[in-house]
Every structure is written in C-alpha cells, then in structure tokens.
Computed example of a mutant assay.
Amino acid sequence: MHMLGIAFDIDDTLYDLADPYRTALRDCFGPLPGVSASELFAANLRHFDKTYERARAGELAMDDMFAHRQLSAFAEQGMSISLEEALSFQRVYRDLQCRISLTPLMRGLLDDLAHAGARLGVVSNGYSDNQWRKVRTLGLTQWFAPEAIVVSEDVGVAKPDRRIFDMAAGRMGTDPSTSWFVGDAARNDVDGAAAAGWRTIWFDRGRGAGEPSRRAADLRVGSEEELAGVVRGLLGRDCGPNARARTAPGAIKEA
C-alpha cells in the first residue's frame, strides 16, 4: 500500500502573499486614490511567470526581474513609477516577507497531516535565497523534511515542468498516484503536477495567478477553511487532534 503524499506551493498557498504586498504599498506610496491594491497585486502575480522565465533564461538579472515586474504591474493600473521607486518598493516588500507567518488554521492542518503520518513536501518556483528565507520564517521544517522542500533554482528545473514533481515524489518517498499537490497557480501547479501523475487541489484565491491551466484540477477551493476541510477529508474523519475544525458539507468544489 502506497503512503499518502501531500505537497504544497509556498507563496499564496501556505500563506497569503497579498498581506506583505499591501503593507509595502502603503509604506512606500501611501494612499493611492483610484488604484485598487487587490488589482495591483493581481497584476504583479500575472507578470511573475513571464519575468521569472526570462531571468531563468539569463535575459534578466534578479533586480531587473523584480523591477520589471513592478513597473509592468503599476503601468497596468495607470501608474508611472521610476526604476528607483520600483526597486525600493521591491526591497520593502522582500523585507516584509521576513515577517510572514502561518495562520493558526494552517498550522493546525499541518499538525494533523503530520499526526496522520502523511508524507509532506514543498515544490516552489523562485530564487533559492528568497524561498529558503520564507521556509525559515514560516518554520516549515517543523513539518517538512528539508530534503522534501524542492526549490526550482536549487534543482535547475521549474514548474510546470513535470520533472520537479518527479523529484519531489522521489524525495518524499511517495508514488505519484497517491500524491496530491496544492497550489494557487493553475498552469504551474495544476498542469505541472497532473502531468507527473499527481492529483491536484487548486487553491483559487480569485487573483488570476499565472496563465490558465490546460487541465482541470481534481478539486478547487477558495479559502484556507475550504482547503482544511478538503485535505482532512483525504485522511478520514479521525485524522488528528484538530479534526473537529472542519468546513461545512459542500465546501469541496469539483474543478
């Protein structure tokens, strides 16, 4: 019998990436009449994949990637900012990511998964220093073995390439057929994991992260509460000490 495996994306999956972004926006620019912080953040996410792929291909240095992403996002909202302002904003945003934390609900879910003996992993696109800093800040090694935390820059391949999911399954010691991946980006997370034979849970925060998927996710959730209910459902009713904190019937959405 194969062991159940569950792996997660980091950004906008294990924690809400919009929180430090909104704070950085306020600290750097103050009130922005007529500009929606939510739409600006969504535009930032849409430009991440494009700039990250250019950076991986050697077309952009890391600072240029960050600046280009912010300049493009602000331009979509009718705002013109300078290169210096974009870089300053990115520095504040990056520093605030050193203060991120898991919600009590997410911590309880990870406790239950560990208590149930599930094999846990992380698959994240991004620069090694940035992503491992988030791992430390969030305290993820309390639940995830370091070798089961797979960061794209470390391994030389990025989502949605199925090879990064193959690596994760190997490190977690699980079979893809009994493994689930939870992520917010439809193309990177859903398409990539499904291509590797995993089942998928799309954490759709309604932000349009990345490109649309070509495959349907097995399940779709829109909040941490729904995610907790779905994942605990995979384990059965008596899955751990926090099992009483469930969502109402019907929280699971077929994608």
Rank of each mutant, 00 (worst) to 15 (best):
M1L: 12
I6P: 05
I10V: 14
I10K: 06
T13P: 05
T13V: 02
L14H: 02
A18M: 05
P20T: 12
P20Y: 08
G30K: 02
G30F: 03
G30D: 00
S38R: 11
A42S: 08
A42M: 00
F48D: 04
D49S: 12
A55C: 13
M62Y: 15
M65V: 01
G78E: 08
S88A: 15
D95Y: 04
L105W: 03
L109Y: 09
L110P: 01
D112G: 04
L120M: 14
V123A: 11
G126Q: 01
Y127A: 08
R133A: 13
R136D: 15
P146F: 09
E153P: 00
V157Y: 07
D161W: 10
F165G: 00
D166S: 13
M172S: 02
T174F: 06
W180C: 13
V190H: 06
A196S: 12
A196V: 10
T200S: 14
T200C: 06
I201P: 03
F203K: 07
R205N: 00
G210L: 11
P212D: 14
R214H: 14
A216G: 03
A217I: 08
L219M: 06
R220W: 08
E225C: 07
E226Y: 06
G236S: 05
G236M: 05
D238Y: 12
D238K: 01
G240N: 04
P241G: 11
A245M: 12
